[in-house]
């Protein structure tokens, strides 16, 4: 059992939990993920590791409930426990293997949106701890969905916040900010983008235009997360990769986005039915014809 030490609502739809998991905390590195299961009947949900404290033995997760299993996470309060909390999984970010000298040669740009803002944080922090400042763009639909602004500002070189509806700071999407920064004469040679698939795709189209190599972090459907089921396979270049053992980070220019987006929708109907069953109970049995 893995005890929840704190539970915080970060935005209208995003939650943060700090969980006691000393063994994991000791081995975590930026870019990795873990698998969480609330209880015996729950699914194994892959979540990116958002922060970790080796001394306190804690790992921070940030999630936006999308299916029944992650929605049920919200039933848990401070002091309750997850049944399973396993990892770290996947390969650490490339930056973890770079020497300080290599790192200093890089001009980093991080682009994040939605719940993807959280896993960008440990990478920017890692660089900050090594004296390297990275620029960060956070994009969100509207101000209510923004989180980690102050936290990110503490570790980032420059922080740019943009909202689709202009309700806060810059108005527009992340790619408009990239365009503007490049137009201003800013130079980057390493971009990391984590967020909704559609955002990562368009970010890559933009950075490709400027020749900035871009790494993305994929979060496909998974079951075991250890390389056993193959559910998380995706096409990178002309190879089929498993996100759980080969990733989760890949060269964004080589990803077959159309395939990834379709695969992510595979269980939509089944998930939708389960969600209705969870929200409305047995009343929905038999189906409404819409689900």
């Amino acid at each position: 059992m893995f005890k929840i030490l704190s539970k915080t609502q970060l935005s209208a739809v995003v939650w943060e939990m700090v969980v006691e998991a000393p063994l994991l905390a000791r081995h975590c590195r930026p870019g990795q993920f873990l698998i969480v299961r609330k209880d015996e009947v729950g699914e194994r949900i892959p979540l990116t590791i958002c922060d970790y404290d080796t001394e306190k033995g804690t790992v921070t997760i940030v999630f936006q409930p999308v299916g029944v299993s992650s929605e049920k996470f919200l039933e848990l309060e401070e002091g309750d426990s997850f049944l399973d909390f396993v990892g770290p999984l996947g390969r650490p970010s490339d930056i973890c293997d770079m020497s300080d000298e290599e790192l200093r040669k890089k001009k980093f740009l991080f682009v994040c949106g939605g719940v993807g803002t959280a896993p960008v944080y440990p990478q920017v922090k890692w660089l900050h701890e090594r004296g390297i400042s990275a620029d960060v763009i956070i994009g969100c639909r509207t101000k209510d969905l923004l989180f980690y602004e102050d936290k990110m500002r503490e570790v980032a070189g420059h922080l740019y916040v943009t909202t689709d509806d202009g309700s806060y700071m810059h108005k527009g999407v992340v790619t408009t900010v990239i365009d503007e920064l490049v137009a201003e004469g800013k130079e980057y040679n390493h971009c990391v983008c984590i967020g909704p698939m559609i955002m990562m795709k368009f970010c890559c189209l933009t950075t490709q235009k400027y020749g900035i190599p871009t790494i993305v972090s994929m979060n496909p459907i998974m079951v075991d997360g250890t390389g056993m089921c193959g559910a998380c396979r995706l096409t990178v270049g002309d190879e089929v990769k498993f996100a759980c053992v080969d990733g989760p980070e890949f060269d964004g220019f080589k990803i077959n986005w159309a395939e990834c987006m379709k695969r992510a929708a595979m269980y939509k109907t089944v998930e939708g039915e389960a969600k209705l069953r969870y929200q409305e109970g047995k009343t929905h049995e038999g189906g409404c014809g819409n689900c």
Partner: peptide, 30 residues
Amino acid sequence: NANGVFSANEYLTRNNLMKAFRDDYDTPIY
């Protein structure tokens, strides 16, 4: 890689370990 192609490992794990065949479990199965 089309939707609806599974490894036997995935299909069986969903059903055996994750008990997708039982209504009381949250695991989806195609």
